[in-house]
Design a protein around this nucleic acid. Structure first.
Lengths: 94, 94
DNA sequence: AAAATTTGGTTTATATTATAAACTACTTTA
DNA sequence: TAAAGTAGTTTATAATATAAACCAAATTTT
């Protein structure tokens, strides 16, 4: 029987966010919105879900006078992504 | 910007079905249900969606006196899966 | 300097999707 | 022949994703 795919990661936008974060130390809200092509609302919601799960850390600060939301992977998030990728490979025989 | 993942394929059960069908000539309903661990209802719905999209061919026959639903990938389905996998690889840098 | 626009988001309502439960039709077994 | 099993479909509900509406502060325009 096939393993199950972590449903928190098996969502296009959340997977995109996590994939981007895998490759950088951190990324801010605007960057993630541009890279994923998502709306701000959708991005906000999905970042919340990933943060609630402990998969990403979200830090709110100011860059000059403008608010800035910076996101980064947690160790837990990295583990979850590795597992997800391994499961996908099982599905797709990669 | 990241490409979009074909939403018809980016669903755990449909992806499982398609992955299984990639590796065999055909598979019947019961086999797919066992391999995926899904309920018959869910499987029936998702097979319909894949068939409506032209990704799989569904043939209904009888094995002895019992009905038997046999599924196989279409050329179109194979192409769609290849594209999906390529897009995933872009996400995950595989 | 007031009004309009932009930036950087959040909240909330709606549309979509997945899933399970209920059901149908037929077969096998006790 | 009644009960249980097989092979599914239909339908109702739960979960999810998404966009639209909104907010507050900053910036630009007139």
């Amino acid at each position: 029987m096939l393993r199950t795919l972590n449903p928190l990661l098996h969502s296009e936008l959340r997977l995109a966010i996590m994939s981007i974060l895998l490759g950088v130390e951190s990324a801010d809200f605007t960057f993630l919105r541009e890279q994923t092509g998502s709306t701000a609302g959708n991005l906000s919601v999905q970042l919340d879900k990933l943060a609630s799960a402990g998969y990403i850390a979200v830090e709110k600060s100011f860059r000059g006078k403008m608010p800035c939301t910076t996101c980064s992977l947690t160790a837990e998030g990295r583990v979850a992504m590795n597992e997800y990728v391994e499961t996908l490979k099982q599905y797709l025989k990669l």
